[in-house]
Write a protein that binds this DNA or RNA. Structure first.
Ligand SMILES: [Mn+2]
Ligand SMILES: [Mn+2]
Ligand SMILES: [Mn+2]
Ligand SMILES: [Mn+2]
Lengths: 230, 230
DNA sequence: ATCTACACTTTGATATATCAAAGTCAAGGT
DNA sequence: ACCTTGACTTTGATATATCAAAGTGTAGAT
């Protein structure tokens, strides 16, 4: 139906836009998200505007139309279900599935997608904690705060990781900092721009504020079933 | 690495060529296998010959080089493992997996392919009985006779089905004529060009010689554990 | 020996997606 | 008001893959 290129522009535009999707996304931003030169993006965007998939304001930027958003959500759904499948069923590492899914998301049929979804028992989040849009085109828009906003002495649990860098993901897994895992914030040094974390089931680690900003968390309200030293 | 188009030309050339791969495949044949006009095939073939993937004799035809054959086998391997996976793991019907695999065969990484192969426990044949090339590029070239060559009174078991038509595959499944299943040849009418079969676990059916030719079988040497009427 | 068909090749065109580099707009600084 | 500069658009080109239709070669028929 739509080409891989078209699907990629729509998906990246969706991922770049902010929640409501009202604000314009600058062309340069879209171009670099898609990985093309600005001139290429301008050309493609004119075609997509022509097809009614997005609104284009020259020298202003772009915004998805409802039709474009629907298509983008479908691509995101495919991407995230595929990632979940690769981890849960094929046993790949969460650090390597993003790249695999980049290609597969454009060729998996709805037939196969829904079979996979069913086998996985309709997951709500992918291995990185990203919400999976439903087949009907809705998506959980709950906002989470980043670890970087928390102070020392707080207990949180990891909800989502926004950085797909394989090395970083492997680092997080090694330190027990995956979605669903709990962490105590042991210290925070504003001058060094670093935070020291004590993962529930790992050893303390210090990470920079920049990376901490990529980790979304939720305040750990109910006490975790604390593992007791015997 | 290679485009979908290139992979398709090589795969279809492999499938059209005869066992040894020594004979030239006519351009018209390749073109219609790939589904393009003859002129398009000529152009592409010149490019592939340039890349050393096939030998091209103008107005004679084409033949895979060892490099082309290796690549073709890899695509065939992907196709057949994907088909097997779709049937065995995702539970799709054997009549619908061929089309799905046509696209997937060009985007599945080796990483994912080998994971799937491992989960399937290194299958030797796909759901249609087609042999699966190994990762090292060898393929079972055992020849099987077609059902059309057998006479009435013979007992055979289905090995492979060469026709991918979904309706035909569904027909075969309904009548218990899948690879691995046994059939007695009840009658054969040369004038009507029809054969009447009695599948071990189904009701008798009559099929045309043309369709019988698409069903490869093996003489049922050791007596099947005959189900006895109680 | 010549002709005729058909298979094949060539040519000219189209569609899609891309880049480099030249040109343009406009916001902010002076 | 005018410049400067950076973001954006336009232009001209390239790569790949395709088709329609015109041109050509050859094997077999006469
Ligand atoms: Mn991803
Ligand atoms: Mn993800
Ligand atoms: Mn197939
Ligand atoms: Mn098959």
């Amino acid at each position: 139906m739509h080409s891989t290129a078209v699907e990629n522009y729509l998906k990246h535009l969706f991922l770049e836009q902010n929640d409501d999707g009202e604000e314009l996304v600058a062309m340069g931003r879209l171009a670099s998200a898609v990985g093309v030169t600005p001139g290429t993006a301008t050309t493609m965007v004119k075609t997509l505007a022509e097809s009614g998939l997005l609104d284009y304001e020259p020298r202003g930027g772009v915004r998805l139309t409802p039709a474009g958003r629907k298509l983008a959500l479908h691509v995101v759904r495919r991407h995230r279900i595929i990632e979940t499948f690769l981890v849960k069923v094929l046993g790949l590492d969460w650090s390597e599935v993003h790249d695999e899914a980049e290609d597969l998301e454009h060729v998996i049929s709805d037939r196969v997608l829904e079979k996979i979804d069913q086998i996985l028992n309709h997951p709500e989040r992918d291995p990185h904690g990203d919400p999976i849009p439903t087949a009907r085109g809705t998506i959980d828009t709950a906002e989470h705060e980043s670890l970087a906003t928390y102070d020392a002495g707080t207990d949180v649990s990891v909800v989502r990781v926004l950085d797909q860098d394989p090395e970083f993901l492997q680092f997080l897994a090694r330190h027990r900092l995956r979605p669903g895992q709990r962490v105590a914030i042991q210290g925070r040094d504003e001058v060094a721009e670093a935070m020291t974390l004590r993962p529930e089931s790992g050893n303390p680690v210090t990470i920079g504020i920049g990376k901490a900003a990529k980790i979304l968390v939720r305040a750990a309200t109910d006490a975790a079933p604390e593992r007791r030293e015997s």
